[in-house]
Write a protein that binds this DNA or RNA. Sequence first.
DNA 1: TCTGGGGTCCTAGGACCC
DNA 2: TCTGGGGTCCTAGGACCC
Length: 423
Amino acid sequence: MRAIGIVDCNNFYVSCLRSFMPKLIGQPVIALSNNDGCVVARSNEAKKIGIKMGQPLFQITKKIFDYNVQVFSSNYELFGDMSRRVFSAMQRFVEEFHPYSVDEAFFSFNQVEQMQPGLLEYCQSIRSTVDQWTRIPVSIGLAETMTLAKVANKWAKSHPEHQGVFWIDTAEKRDEILDQFPIQDLWGVGRQYQALLKRHGIKTALQFSKMPHDWIQQFMTVEGLRLIYELQGIPCRSLDTEPLHKKSICVAPSFGRKVTKYSTVYEALATYLARAAEKLRKHQSAAGVVTVFLHTNRFDPIGPHHYGSMSVALPHPSSSTTELLNYAEPLLKAIWKEGYDFQKVGVILNEIMPVEHQQKLIFADSPDPRHAALSQVVDQINLRHGRDKLRVAAQGYDKSWKIKQRYKSPCYTTKWSDILTVK
DNA sequence: TCTGGGGTCCTAGGACCC
DNA sequence: TCTGGGGTCCTAGGACCC
């Protein structure tokens, strides 16, 4: 028998912080999104006092004061590195390991019957090893399909008596759990589908799994149908059908303040484009289409508002920062409007293909090999000496528009200057 | 309802082809 | 008053995920 598993780090960002600041254990702790905008991770204590996922920070200032909530800005350098550590630990103990997000990964066991001492005990030992190595608590869900594994994982989290591991191993157990499982907690059911299903009297996953297939397909597309099959134990998603390369890369953080000057927006665009091109090169890919967009703050009730977006197809795919910027700059000029308070500029790269494919094609205007060589040198230098040590002049020096991070934690694992010291 | 950012897949409808 | 069939490609938009 085969079992599909999903491992999920509990309150991941908060757990990363606690890993290096043990005094935070037992306290209400939250981690914020970019610009300290809203809550993206909460400790159990923070959940208990009613802080919601995605809630804007300004709405909970009183709660933070009253309960002495510990607040931290995003620190993706730390979180990303901790994610790598957890995954590399996990990987040793399972088959077919596939990271799904920064804090989740799927895996499988193909011969469950032959496992000694048994699947549950084995997963328990994985859990304690990961905890010992990284101080990140994880939960593990196991079942016949990916969707049921997600259900099992949620069950493990909400029922502490299972000590972080739950296995849906029989049809009876499956139906028993699905009968108690709220529809909105299912993987693939968001706000809209939840409302639709509730209007039709569907409240639990078990009820959902018995809906007529043609109705589901009509209102929830084939994705809804797949969901039903998966809940019945018939796999419709597989671990190994992940895309070989990304289809799009987007870099678009908001400004830390309102920006009205073209030159400032252009500096930000050049910086984001450099970041996007770095990602492309890391995946040995090149992009064929560049999109630039720009907008004011949509939540500002007064305005005036402006939204602009424009794309261009390149004569040949490229991953060179300078070359991509040559195409992006006219786009920004075209969508620019004077006299607005802009909140964000962003760049999206599309039509992404691996570089080896690129070389097989014949282009009217073939890429200049010097661009690739230059980018490679820039990446090597920046890898050693820090991001943007070597950069395009257009990225500028005035970084006043950069995101706000008032409560930033140290990068304990990636910066010598931030390393933990023991006195 | 969301004042974050970065992704995915699916569908409807229009343009255009023979 | 009636009036083809069959196909592809592209885009916008909607739903979802973490």
